[in-house]
């Protein structure tokens, strides 16, 4: 199993050069059935990452650019009256894909955002009283520009919680950038890619992730982390965050070829899982969620 995952990671690594950590985290997020939020400046390869992931897993891929005039119906679809059949027919929106890339999620109005996030949480869409299930697997990668800009709507805290992880790609290192400059066009490379993991296998792996053993000692550590965050911040990590942390760590452990979760796994995914959940406390502590998460991991002793 490990080799399969390794193949996946290395293939993505061919395109996303020098970003192995981010790629691993994104993969772990996918394996843990979570949604991913990428926060970074334009042009560092957010879209390419999403695209590569979809390609390598053979997933149906759609990209939606969020704008301020985007309406909920534009993404989930709408029912249109068909004169011939004399009834409403549901036209599925772009959300009905196995992998959806949402660009600049904070540009859309809160109304549209909440429609999206609701769909992510429920894995189905209800329109005019009819429930339409979303495809399975269903994986959302949203990107967000970190800088405050006029005309953006930052995601409310309750909705940030829906994303399992938030990662940053960052500017590639000098060597990696050189490789990119010299190398083939990414888009052409992408077209040549073959899926390395069929959907059935992906589902199987996702099942397996949930079965990775978490011992009482590890759960103690996890709870210590949650409690510590609740002690020191006005709104600490929610129980959902705890679950997210556990699932992400399970996925990470499985990627390491282990059948049990170690504190190291929690620490590996910790910042990605916790930072955006702690970040909204920013006004109070004047420190970024990333620093808060790092401090938390530094301060809670491993039992």
């Amino acid at each position: 199993m490990k080799s399969r995952i390794e193949t996946l990671v290395s293939q993505i690594g061919q395109i996303i050069v020098g970003k192995e950590d981010a790629v691993r985290l994104a993969t772990a997020c996918l394996l843990a059935r979570g949604h991913l939020l990428i926060e970074d400046i334009p042009g560092v390869g957010k879209t390419t990452l999403a695209h590569t992931l979809a390609r390598s897993l053979g997933l149906q891929f759609r990209r939606i650019q969020f704008t301020s005039d985007l309406l909920p119906a534009d993404i989930v679809g709408n029912s249109i009256f068909d004169r011939e059949q004399q009834r409403f027919i549901f036209h599925a929106g772009p959300l009905f894909s196995q992998m959806v890339l949402i660009d600049e999620i904070n540009r859309a109005t809160p109304k549209t955002q909440s429609a999206l996030l609701e769909a992510m949480e429920e894995t189905h869409v209800t329109i005019d009283g009819v429930t339409h299930p979303l495809p399975s697997p269903f994986f959302v990668i949203a990107t967000q520009n970190p800088q405050h800009q006029i005309g953006t709507f930052p995601l409310p805290e309750s909705q940030l919680d829906r994303f399992l992880m938030r990662i940053e790609l960052g500017v590639p290192g000098r060597a990696a950038e050189r490789t990119m400059l010299l190398g083939q066009d990414r888009k052409i490379m992408l077209k040549e890619f073959r899926p390395v993991m069929p959907i059935e296998t992906l589902t199987e792996v996702q099942e397996q992730v949930r079965r990775v053993h978490a011992s009482p000692a590890l759960l103690d550590y996890l709870q210590d982390l949650l409690e510590a965050s609740r002690r020191r911040h006005r709104a600490g990590l929610s129980p959902r965050a705890g679950l997210a942390l556990l699932h992400a760590a399970q996925a990470w452990a499985l990627m390491q070829g282990r059948e049990m979760v170690l504190p190291e796994d929690i620490q590996a995914v910790g910042v990605a899982v916790m930072a955006h959940r702690l970040g909204h406390d920013m006004e109070a502590t004047e420190t970024s969620g990333r620093t808060l998460a790092q401090n938390l991991l530094r301060e809670v002793p491993v039992p």
Binding site: E264, R298, V302
Partner: peptide, 8 residues
Amino acid sequence: EPWEGAQH
């Protein structure tokens, strides 16, 4: 370190 896991 207190926060350090056994493997690390």
